[in-house]
């Protein structure tokens, strides 16, 4: 699980071009949107791409991802349960 959390953080940093950010600067439980990382609607769509590309999980819309994308821990939980690759 720890490795998965680390992987997801690196994938987020890479896909969202979070320049100069390291995984330990992202709090596992902090909200990704609004406060916390301050991600926006395009980033939410980009997270959908990460889930598909890295874990074979297909979400249809950002609305479906609302619960999943609450924090890095939430994403890791969801990935562990639903991953197909």
């Amino acid at each position: 699980m720890e490795q998965l959390v680390e992987d997801i953080k690196l994938q987020i940093i890479d896909a969202l071009n979070l320049e100069d950010m390291t995984p330990d600067q992202i709090d596992n439980d902090a909200p990704l949107f609004g406060e916390g990382l301050g991600l926006d609607s395009i980033d939410a769509l980009e997270l959908i791409v990460i889930l598909d590309k890295c874990y074979g999980i297909k979400l249809k819309s950002p609305a479906e991802g609302k619960e999943v994308f609450k924090s890095v821990n939430c994403i890791a939980d969801y990935v562990q349960k639903h991953r197909t690759k």
């Binding site: 896909a15 071009n17 980033d43 769509l45 980009e46 791409v49 598909d52």
Partner: peptide, 9 residues
């Protein structure tokens, strides 16, 4: 096939 919204925009 992983088109990226932030690249596309």
């Amino acid at each position: 096939y992983y088109p990226s919204p932030s690249v596309f925009i």
